[in-house]
Amino acid sequence: MTTPAAAPHPAPGSAVDLVDVRKTYEGRAVLAGASLTVRAGETMVILGPSGTGKSVLLRHINGLTKPDEGQVFVFGQDVVPLSEEEMAPVRLRVSMLFQGGALFDSMNVFDNVAFPMREHTPMNPSEIKKRVAEKLSLVGLPGTQKKMPAELSGGMRKRVALARSIALDPEIILFDEPTTGLDPLNSEKINELIHDLNQRMKATFIVVTHDIVSARAIADRVAFLHGGIFEFVGSFDEAAHGAHPILSDFFRSQGFPAGTEAAAIASAAVRALEKGDPS
């Protein structure tokens, strides 16, 4: 097989470079040669219908899942052959916000946010206390240190998880469906928060979502994952008005590019109602 004018990998200036990643689960090819370059400092939104392997793709970047084939470069280093222990230095620079937040439910909010600091830094308790308070106010939840995760709403849990994932000032943050299961108001709050953080931290954000409203709010570029490969990579406007047939179907299903604010808000409201999630 010949690859026409093979680009060098890892691509220069990239934070994450996925090269021909393949992953099969129980005979189904979830990723069938997905390649994507994410530039340092940008917010890349990976769009696609549910169940197309977006989350699986994200888990390849911090090595939670290993591909059957392909290379995953993070900061220019191929992380595929790394063992769990060798992965540690990479994981300290790449944090992840899980779909349900994945807060430790045996610990209160303070201990959750302090967890990475206690594990990986020599900070003393008063420094940790200060840093936790700072991170919590950054996500708009000051003074919630004593609460247990079970006492928080879905949106608050995600924000605490966000505080935990920025605890060590990572250079890349992976977001797994940050607005799924939230009502439109809370979704908007999370979108604003991600946008603000991006302005503030100058980190690379990779966001997996099927929520187009969210994508428009935060994306520098969007990539469309379909059938295990990236069918489209470009700006949001190109995606919304592009000629890609499946992608425009996907946009139309969420009220785009009829483009009016009202259509988008209405469709978001309908989706939230259908889910019946009160958070």
């Binding site: 939670l64 899980f98 994945a102 430790f104 439910d105 967890f115 594990e119 990986h120």
Partner: peptide, 21 residues
């Protein structure tokens, strides 16, 4: 039961993602 519920709610993955074994 404890580790199992931590596993299915991705708490164990979150731990790995934070470079804690």
């Amino acid at each position: 039961a404890e580790l199992g519920s931590m596993t299915v709610t991705e708490q164990v993955d979150a731990m790995r993602a934070m470079a804690v074994s």
